[in-house]
Design a protein around this nucleic acid. Structure first.
Lengths: 332, 332
DNA sequence: CAACAAAAACGAAACGTTTCGTTGTGATAA
DNA sequence: TTATCACAACGAAACGTTTCGTTTTTGTTG
C-alpha cells in the first residue's frame, strides 16, 4: 500500500500541515526537517499527485502539440522539451496532429480537459484561433517556430528573414545569379519569412526575381523531391538551389542523386538544419543552422517560468541562425 | 469556475452517487439519464481528473518510453500509439531516454511516480531489469519491437528472423553469393534476430559465411555510413548489401552516393522499412517492410485491454514482415 | 522576569470524485 | 391486499493532499 502523510505523521509526530509545509517549501525547525526526511526515505514515501492536484489545481503536466512527430525537426524539439520538463518534474503529454487542423483543435481540447498546466506547441493553424480556448481557461501557451496571427503569447522563433538572407548572400557572393528557391507554402510562418529574406537579398543585389525559380510546395521530403526535379529539368536550370526546410532539402538531395548531378561540381546548394542526414552528405553542405537545442531550452524555460509564478507581459525570444561553411558552393 | 457534480445535482435534483453511476456506466432510469445529459451540456461540465483519480486510483495516463525519438522508426510508432491512446481517452506521457540506460531507468521511475496506468516501451536495456519496478507496483508493461531477457510481459514484435531470411533469399535468388550485412550490435534483440535469419538463409543455400562481410555497428545513420564505406572499399567488395535497420540503410545510401556507386548497376541492395526517405530513393528499393501502423495498433490494444480489466497470462503478438519488390537487385 | 513579536506547529475544513451499505419505489406473485 | 423482489436512488464516508485561521513555542527586549 502506498504511504501517505499519515504514515509520516505517525513516525514524526508532526501535524499534516507541517508535513505539507515541508514539501511546499515553508520554513521550519531543522530537526523537524531532518525527521521528516528520515521518515520519507524509511517509508519510501511518494506524494500522491491526485490528492495534491485536487487541492492545488496543478497537474504538473504540460501538453506538447506538434504538427507531425515524424518530421525530424519536430521530433528533436519534442524530445528536448520533454527532457527539460521531466528534469523539472513535469510530465509531457505529446499529441501529434498529423498535419490536420481538426485533430489539432481536438487534441488541444483533450489536453485542456486533462488539466495540463500549460501547452507548448508548434501551431499548424497559422491564425491560432484554437489556442484561445487555452487562454480562456488560463492555461499558458508557448509557441515554437511559428507565430500565430490571431493569438499573441510567449514564443520562441529564429530570425527566419535573415536566415533566408544569409543563404542568398552566400550564393550571391560566389557569383550565382540564377538561384532556385524551394520553400513551403506561404501559409506557414517560417516558410514565408525565409522566402522573404531570401528574395529581399536577391533584389538588394540587383538580381531580378524569376518566378519560375521559386517553388512553393508542401514541405515534405516528397515535396522537395518534386520541386527539385522540376527546377533541374528546366530548359535553363538554376546554377544553385536553396531549400528553406530540412525535409525539402532531403527530397532535393534525392533528386540530385537520381539525376546524377553532383553537389558543387554540377550544382551549388545551401541547405538547412544540421540534423543526422546532413552530417553524412558529401561534400559537406554549406548550410543555415538553427540552434534547435536552444529553441527547445528557451521554450521550456518560458513555460516553466509561467508555471512557477505570474509573468507580466508577453515574451518573444528570437534566436539567431548561423551559416556553416561547407563545400557545396562553387564559384561561377 | 469549473463545474462539479454538485452543479449537476442542483440542476437535476439527483444524488451525487447517481451522477457518479451515470459516468461509470451503471443502469439507471432513462429520464434521469437524459436529465443528467442535459445538465452536462448546459453547464459545460467536465470531470475533474484529480478527484476521479484520487478515488479510483487510475490516472488514465500511459507512459511511452523510447530509446531515441528522433529515429524515424521510433517517432512513427510513438506518434501512432499516442493517437490511439488519445482516442481512447488516455494521455501519453513521452520519455526519450537518448540511448542512455541510466536515463531509461530514471524516466521509468519518474513515470511510475507520476502514477501512469501503464507503460509502453521499446526497451533499451535488453535484460529489462528496470521494468521489474513497474511490475512491483502492478503497472502493466507492453514491449514493442524487442523482448527483454529478464522480464516477461505482453509484447508486439515482428518476425525478425524471417525478415532477415527473406532479405537473404531475395539476393540469393538473383545469384548473389558475396553479400554484405550491415547490422546493429548484437545486444539489440531485433538486430540479433535479423542477422541470424539472414545468416541461416545463406548457410542453408550453401554459402559460407565470410566474417569480413558482416559489420556490426551502432544502428545510426552514421554507423551505416561507416560500415558501408568499409565494405565497399574492400579489395573484393560484396556484390550486394542488406541493412538490418532503416537508419543504417540511410547511412549506406549516403556512402553509395559518395562513392558514385549506382544502386542496381553497381551494387544490389535490400533495404528495410518503407518510411519517408525510402520513397524517394531511385531506383525503388526492394525492401523488407514492417507493418509499423499495425505494431502501434497492437501495442495500444494490448495496453488498453490490460487497463480495462484483468487479462490472464502473457500475450506475445508476432507480426509478419513483407518483402516489397523494387528494382534494386541485379541478376549476377 | 514579564511582555511581546515572530516563527513554527496545529486542527479542521476543504478539493470533487467514488464506493458501499441503506433506503425507497414500483412491479409481480401469493 | 400484502409480502416479495429487483432495481434505482440516496447519504455518508472515504481518497490524500493543501490552506487558512488559531494556538503554541521560541527568542527578544525592557
Amino acid at each position: 500500500m502506498a504511504k501517505t502523510y499519515k504514515d509520516i505523521q505517525r513516525m514524526t509526530g508532526l501535524s499534516l500541515s507541517t508535513i505539507s509545509k515541508y514539501f511546499n517549501g515553508g520554513s521550519m525547525r531543522p530537526e523537524n526537517r531532518v525527521s521528516i526526511e528520515r521518515a520519507i526515505t524509511k517509508l519510501d514515501y511518494r506524494m500522491n499527485p491526485f490528492a495534491s492536484g485536487l487541492k492545488s489545481r496543478r497537474s504538473r503536466k504540460v501538453g506538447i502539440l506538434i504538427p507531425e512527430l515524424t518530421s525530424t525537426h519536430h521530433s528533436l524539439i519534442t524530445s528536448e522539451v520533454c527532457q527539460h520538463l521531466r528534469e523539472a518534474g513535469y510530465d509531457s503529454v505529446v499529441c501529434d496532429c498529423h498535419l490536420d487542423q481538426a485533430i489539432e483543435r481536438d487534441a488541444l481540447l483533450f489536453l485542456l480537459d486533462k488539466m495540463v498546466d500549460g501547452v507548448i506547441t508548434i501551431p499548424l493553424n497559422q491564425r491560432g484561433d484554437h489556442l484561445k480556448e487555452a487562454a480562456r481557461r488560463e492555461v499558458p501557451v508557448v509557441l515554437v517556430d511559428r507565430l500565430a496571427s490571431e493569438f499573441r503569447t510567449d514564443a520562441v522563433i529564429v530570425d527566419n528573414v535573415s536566415a533566408g538572407g544569409m543563404a542568398a548572400e552566400a550564393l550571391l557572393a560566389h557569383g550565382h545569379r540564377r538561384i532556385g528557391l524551394i520553400t513551403g507554402l506561404p501559409d506557414i510562418y517560417t516558410m514565408r519569412a525565409r522566402a522573404q529574406g531570401f528574395q529581399s537579398a536577391l533584389i538588394q543585389s540587383g538580381v531580378a526575381l524569376d518566378p519560375a525559380l521559386t517553388r512553393e510546395i508542401e514541405f515534405t521530403v516528397d515535396g522537395g523531391y518534386q520541386a527539385a526535379m522540376a527546377l533541374l529539368t528546366m530548359r535553363e536550370p538554376p546554377s544553385a538551389l536553396f531549400c528553406a526546410n530540412y525535409d525539402l532539402m532531403l527530397g532535393m538531395i534525392m533528386a540530385l542523386n537520381e539525376l546524377g548531378l553532383r553537389i558543387y561540381e554540377d550544382i551549388s546548394v545551401v541547405g538547412i538544419d544540421d540534423l543526422t542526414l546532413s552530417r553524412v552528405i558529401k561534400p559537406r553542405l554549406t548550410m543555415i543552422m538553427q540552434p534547435m537545442q536552444e529553441i527547445a531550452a528557451q521554450a521550456s524555460r518560458l513555460m516553466m517560468e509561467r508555471l512557477e509564478g505570474p509573468v507580466p507581459g508577453i515574451r518573444l525570444v528570437e534566436l539567431p541562425t548561423e551559416l556553416i561553411q561547407g563545400a557545396s558552393i562553387k564559384r561561377v
